[in-house]
Design a protein around this nucleic acid. Structure first.
Lengths: 343, 343
DNA sequence: ACCGCAATCCAAAGCGCTTTGGATAGATGT
DNA sequence: ACATCTATCCAAAGCGCTTTGGATTGCGGT
């Protein structure tokens, strides 16, 4: 069912039918009602490609998934962020498009998406320190939003981020207040911007307390369960093991917990644990009492907000850049307690 | 940069340029080389909407994410399935599109996607028993593939599924062989087809062993960590608690493990556990020795295969339907052991 | 020298929609 | 009664591409 078929059927011109359906004023209200009724009856839906060609908009927003050639790691927060975003997109009439690109061609992927006219804007996820993609998108002068920020990039750009530094600063202080002195950090990959900020917060808190950071207690890698387990196991076997561990992800925290159990220790008594909790829908941090003491910030909500900000940007490309910094809340669960009196 | 601009620049007609770039034979090879060089140099990329309009294809494949209004549960396997699929799509020149729909309008969402000409095919995920969407898509005579199957739907359709029944049959037999008699099943939502098949396998094994199923030991809900924890806790508090637990998801298995620990029991000695492992990239089941004994089947690979099958279907819409049944492997880890001699 | 054929190229139509620039007719104003 | 609006509708162009149906040229064959 095309516009022309519908208009023939109604004895009207395509022009009028188009206007009737798109809410233009130059059409009689009774005619409009007739048109709408017929459109509904026959299930007419304008072809989005034709519409896009005519209007110059695609009403699609793009996300590029990097398929790190080796690891093929799929970020576990991906699903929740997307779920938040897609909801907002749908409400505003946008569709969401994914493309996959390996690390070397990721810039090419963004360029292709735009120059083909496939999308009206993109979301940039998982920014690294000195993220190159930001300047690429900036130069293309294309609407985009960054989920996270990038230290070292001076250009103005829209972003939404959690206050990683302050939340890890606070979490570390919390542990220090409990008397812990040997606090480990199991962090994400070091070149990721969020990981660097979290480390900064951690280091700042240690510095305030006059504690020298110990490289042995600072680990970083992709945040899988197995990684958390492995690093914890290794660190607990040190001559002078940590009494508290700070972890950048709930997933890894589960591995940490497993290692603590295996070592015959008790989490919250022998070893305190604080994790960053993205509030994933399938991995709730307990129901009444949180399992882990955690710095919590919903990544789904971040997805929603990011989508809204991007849509705003698409509407007014020349508006001043906007940013949004979310504060994580510190929820206290049963995984933390006073430092054990070992000596 | 449009086709016309490029052709003007080259002193050729749009026809010839189009043909040169699309590999048609009626163009001189030296001309073709010239055109390709110019296209590369100026970064020309055909507008995909215009191309789609002209060819009648969108080169996009659609996925609909149901946002169950209440739970807003995002399936944790989602990310990996998508990662597998999008890789295949990209290789074949397809983009991937998401739409969100609440449970009531999900059928509408599929219809809209096609009638707007937004996609060339769709993937149907998470089929329920008597899945209504299958007949809807069938009637629309539209290319689609189901990830999973639907008991009660007689129509022929393409699907790829894990052999849920046989894998849970085998897992249950494995536990029975270890001497377990009170085996619990922590399953997914009952109306999901996979959950029903897994239960069938479980029940079949019990029946073979002459054991009457006990409703008290069979639970079903959305497979979160907290759910696994809660049900295990409840069951372990029974007068006659299970000695083994079968779980439909690694995520929930983590909660199960937590409950076992909290009860002061040891997994693999006091309580045996087998989980279904989708081989998620961020939740590997251990590295050398698996943590959980598990029925394993990579959902990422399923995504890849599904994508390939769908692309085949799009190419030849009238070919006979194809199906693919993957067998899960039973990997034996440290979470299972002989039934404790309690009495 | 003439015909047929292959190799190259191009003009123009068409995909389904929006939008510009009228046309038409009845209503209004003086 | 005549010019002027206003409300309503339509024809046609255009978005950027593919594709049909020729044109044109040069070559071998007779």
């Amino acid at each position: 069912m095309t516009l022309k078929e519908l208009s023939d059927m109604l004895g009207l011109s395509p022009t009028t039918v188009s206007r009737a359906l798109n809410g233009y004023p130059e059409v009689n209200e009774t005619t409009r009602a007739r048109v709408q009724a017929a459109a509904a009856k026959h299930g007419y839906r304008p072809n989005s490609r034709a519409k896009g060609l005519a209007t110059g908009k695609s009403m699609v927003i793009g996300h590029v998934i990097p398929s790190s050639s080796q690891h093929e790691m799929v970020n576990p927060i991906f699903g929740d962020f997307v779920a938040g975003a897609v909801k907002t997109y749908t409400e505003h009439g946008y569709d969401m498009m994914f493309t996959n690109a390996d690390d070397t061609s990721i810039e090419e992927a963004y360029r292709s998406l735009f120059q083909r006219g496939a999308v009206d804007g993109v979301v940039l996820q998982g920014p690294k320190v000195n993220e190159h993609r930001i300047s690429v998108l900036s130069k293309m002068s294309v609407p985009f939003i960054v989920h996270g920020r990038s230290t070292g990039v001076d250009l103005p750009y829209d972003w939404i981020d959690v206050n990683n530094k302050s939340s890890f600063l606070r979490a570390t202080q919390f542990l220090l207040d409990l008397g812990h002195r040997r606090i480990a950090l199991i962090n994400g990959l070091e070149d990721m911007d969020f990981a660097q900020r979290r480390r900064d917060g951690y280091l700042a808190a240690l510095a305030q307390a006059g504690i020298a950071p110990e490289p042995n207690l600072m680990r970083s890698a992709e945040m899988t369960e197995v990684y958390g387990h492995h690093e914890t196991r290794t660190m607990l076997a040190l001559d002078d093991p940590p009494t508290a561990i700070l972890i950048s992800s709930m997933i890894s925290a589960i591995g940490v917990r497993r290692a603590i159990d295996e070592a015959g220790l008790q989490m919250g008594r022998d070893v305190s644990v604080i994790a960053h909790d993205d509030d994933l829908s399938y991995l709730k941090n307990g129901q009444d009492v949180p399992i882990f003491t955690a710095t919590r910030s919903s990544v789904r909500k971040a997805g929603e907000i990011a989508a809204n900000m991007l849509i705003e940007r698409i509407k007014s490309p020349d508006a001043p850049t906007k940013t949004r910094l979310l504060e994580a809340e510190l929820v206290v669960g049963r995984s933390t307690g006073p430092a054990p009196n070992r000596y």
